[in-house]
Each structure stands twice: as structure tokens, then as C-alpha cells.
Nucleic acid binder design. Structure first.
Lengths: 251, 251
DNA sequence: ATTGACATTGCATGATATTGCACGATAGGG
DNA sequence: CCCTATCGTGCAATATCATGCAATGTCAAT
């Protein structure tokens, strides 16, 4: 058994069980506990796990949780959300996508604003319950857990009964030729349906999304779209989009 | 069991239940109460929880909307929710009402349960996102902010496309002659529609609801209903219902 | 094939962490 | 006010740890 293989196996076990115990590893690999301890120490120094008395734990808590995604790139997302919130006008009907940025947008709507928000995200809905002036319309459907939004035929059907002034869309990629894209097919359908029902589409994206493309295309990048990105080396990153006639707002 | 793992589990339990009891933790982790006390002391010194006699409470009171209502009669509601959670069977399709008790029910579903939950409450939906085995179907519609559930024609229409095995219903009043009632007309319509689409209806109510009546009637009290109430002077309070042939479960 | 540099491993040893128990102090309910 | 459950502390037993060192294995150059 090679050292490297053993370390890989340790990491695999850790990922599977959420923890590893030195004694158990020693037995299963048939090496001394000292060797395991050495392995764990080295893996810990590489940041691949977190050493604790008796074994080890994952260095970063379990992934996949929306709470966690919420914590990455918070500053940029907050800036984008604030900027986008300014675009809402009193009396408008706006569609809010799922995703952390849209939750932040909902949180930062002006407290005195009177408007209607349509959303297929329970998180956004919960966020808006305490806002006195916002009427909330919830789009139902099967809940896609990864991004926590309603998808599927029921959602598509419900969307056809809506007409909105503006749709705040979150995307995974904005690419000059690949267009607007996202990582899930069902979500792409939903976003396309929502975009079709709104007079104006505002895309919210941090600059890391610009020039990136995901598997499922939502729409072409056209002059009709407004993109809100954070202010960050604007010339280099947004030029490809500006060339397409997109309206670009820097947060 | 690693010490750190145990502490994480304590924090998770605390987050889930809103409180932890030293003795119960000692039993569930199979360590001495001293060890638990030490853990709680250390977690408290890190500001992760607040130590109290007999156990611990969250350091910062949970934020959110219905949290305030959630804090009244918590013990009874929690007991009811736990009892009702036991009624769920694998593979079933269940409808969950809005309301704090149903959120608690969602939170206490067995982690290994595989089932489908239909709900018109974004709060319940959000609660279930991290449950690996539960498929969530969201009923859309206009959001009634007071109780934070979807209501209106769109919701009624969506409900007609559902057939469920069981409907866990929250009510404001259970009265021998006035029947099951609630405080909002729209909600009453929704509850009636949901009840019509479920093979079995389980009413969740603390004893204070028994013999009370609100403005809008949902349904008559019939032998077909099961009522879950907390165990509290059962003879005096539930007798009027038992006389009607209701199945009564004491939590 | 041999040699030497280097990595890996297991063991011994002293250090540290964790745990359960004993005992007196304290808090809460009746 | 008393009684009981819970608490905090000191202490001893055990488990786990880090380190040094010697034995063994690996591999490339000769």
C-alpha cells in the first residue's frame, strides 16, 4: 500500500463519513496508528482536513448547502443587489429569480416601496414577508433542491399567467457567443419562460460570470438585456458585452 | 465519537430544537453528564450557545418572521410536531399546512424518511430543502403574509392537481358544533381544498384550540379526522371531541 | 550487483487531552 | 424553608499525541 494511496483513501473515507478516527484507520489499513497520525498531520498541513483529537474532520463543512454558497463573494453580490434594488419602481410587478443574489436583492428593497414581486423561490418569499409594501406571488412546482426554486411543468404553466414589468435574472455564465447560461436544464426552461413574460430583463452577475458559459443556454445576449455587475476592472471584463450593445450597470 | 463531532452535533440539536438538555445529550451520546457539561461550558465560552441550568439555549435568538409566534407554547407544539412526524410512512405523499407547528413537523421528520411533501408554505419548503429524502412540491399563489402561505385562485387551481395520502392541518379552533375553523376566509378555502384532496386528515392542535371557534369554518368535525394534541389534562379537554368519534392522539 | 541517499514505518518515551467519578456548592420547585 | 437536581472543581485513569530513533524498503547511480 503506497502512502499516497492511503492518504487518498483517508480523504475518501472522510468525505464519505464526515469524520475519520485514527484507530479505525490504523486497523483498516493494517498500519500503526503512528503512521496514520503522520498521514493526518501532513494532510492537515496541506489544508485537506482538520485535525482533531482522535481523528480528523473535513476542513470545510459539508458543501451543497445554500447557506454556504451565500457566503462566497458576498461583497460583490451585496453591491449588485443594492444596485439592482434601485431599479425597482413603485407599482411595478417584478419577477425575482432564485439564488443568493436575488435573496439579497429582496432584502435590500427600499422599505417604503410598494410593488408586487413574483418569485419561484421560497427563500425570496420568506425574505419578503416582513416587507410591508410588497405583495408576493409565489410560483409553485416541484422544488429543485440544489438551487431551491420551483421547476417543472406546474411552474411553467403558472408562469404563463403572469405579466411583469421586469425580471431580475441570475445566471451562471454570460458569454458573447454562448449567451446566457445556467447549470440545470429545468432551470433554464424556467428562466426562459420568465424572461418571455417580462417587458425587461435585468441580469445580475458578478464579473466572474462574464465570459463564462454553462451547459444550458437560456437566451442570446441581446441589446434588450441590462446587466448589473460589480465595479471591478470594468474595461477588460465588460468590453465584450458592451460591444453587443448591452446596457451595463456597475454596482 | 470525536469530541469536536459531539460538539457539532450538540450545536445542530440546539439549532433544530431551540434548546438542549444536558441529561438527554448525555444519554444520546452515551457519555457522562460531566462530559456534556464540559462541552456546553466550552461552547458557551466560545459564544456559540448560552448556558442555563439543565442545558443550554441559542446564544442569539433566532431571527425571522414567525419566530415570535413560534415561541409561544413551544413545548406543546414541539410535542405535537414530534408525534405527528411519527405518522408519516415511507413513500407517502403528505400535504403540510403553513403555521409554526407544521414547520416544526417538517423539521422533525425522520432523516432517513423518503416521501413527498406538498405544501403551500414557503417556510415549510425552506425547512425541507436540506432533508435528503424528501421531494418537495410547492403550491403557488398570492402570499397571505400574516400566516405566510399561498392562497387565492391560483393556489386552489394548483391543489386540484394533487392527490395525497395525508394532510396535516393546522386550525385555530376545534369545536363540537362549530367544527374546524380558522381566522381567514381565504385560508379556510385553501384548507378545505387541501382536505378534499387527501385520503386522511390529521389536525394538529394544542389543547387551547379545543372547544374554541374562529370566524371561518373549514369543515365539520367528523369521525374521519384524527386530532393530535399534547398530553395535558386529557379527560376534561378532549372529551367533547372523543364523543364525536374523533381519533385522538396525545403527544 | 553494489552502494548510498532518502523515504517510510514501527516502537519507545514523555507530554497532553479526554473522560468519569467523588465531593461540596448552588439553583429551582414545592 | 427543605429537598432534589444540577453544577463546578479536583483528581486519577485512560487514550491519544508528538518526537526521536532504529529498522526496513526504494531507487538511482555506479
Amino acid at each position: 500500500m503506497l502512502t499516497k494511496h492511503r492518504k487518498q483513501a483517508i480523504l475518501a473515507t472522510l468525505k464519505r463519513d464526515g469524520q475519520v478516527i485514527a484507530k479505525a484507520l490504523s486497523a483498516s489499513f493494517d498500519v500503526s496508528e503512528d503512521t496514520i497520525r503522520r498521514d493526518l498531520r501532513e494532510l492537515a498541513s496541506e489544508g485537506l482536513l482538520q485535525r482533531v483529537h482522535g481523528g480528523a474532520l473535513p476542513s470545510s463543512p459539508a458543501v451543497g448547502d445554500i447557506v454556504q454558497r451565500q457566503q462566497i463573494n458576498t461583497v460583490a453580490k451585496l453591491a449588485i443587489a443594492r444596485k439592482a434594488a434601485e431599479l425597482m419602481l413603485p407599482g411595478q410587478v417584478a419577477i425575482l429569480d432564485g439564488g443568493t443574489t436575488c435573496v439579497l436583492l429582496a432584502r435590500h428593497l427600499p422599505p417604503t416601496l410598494e410593488a408586487t414581486i413574483v418569485t419561484h423561490s421560497p427563500s425570496v418569499a420568506v425574505e419578503l414577508v416582513n416587507h410591508p409594501g410588497i405583495e408576493v406571488v409565489l410560483i409553485g412546482g416541484r422544488l429543485f433542491k440544489h438551487s431551491m426554486v420551483a421547476v417543472g411543468a406546474a411552474a411553467i404553466e403558472a408562469i404563463t399567467h403572469i405579466r411583469a414589468d421586469v425580471y431580475f435574472m441570475g445566471v451562471t455564465g454570460i458569454h458573447p457567443t454562448a449567451g446566457l447560461s445556467t447549470g440545470d436544464l429545468e432551470e433554464a426552461y424556467i428562466k426562459r419562460a420568465l424572461a418571455a413574460r417580462a417587458a425587461e430583463v435585468v441580469v445580475l452577475a458578478s464579473t466572474e460570470k462574464v465570459n463564462a458559459a454553462s451547459a444550458y443556454v437560456i437566451a442570446e445576449v441581446t441589446a434588450a438585456n441590462t446587466v448589473v455587475v460589480e465595479r471591478k476592472t470594468p474595461t477588460t471584463l465588460t468590453d465584450p458585452l458592451a460591444a453587443l450593445g448591452l446596457t451595463i450597470l456597475h454596482a
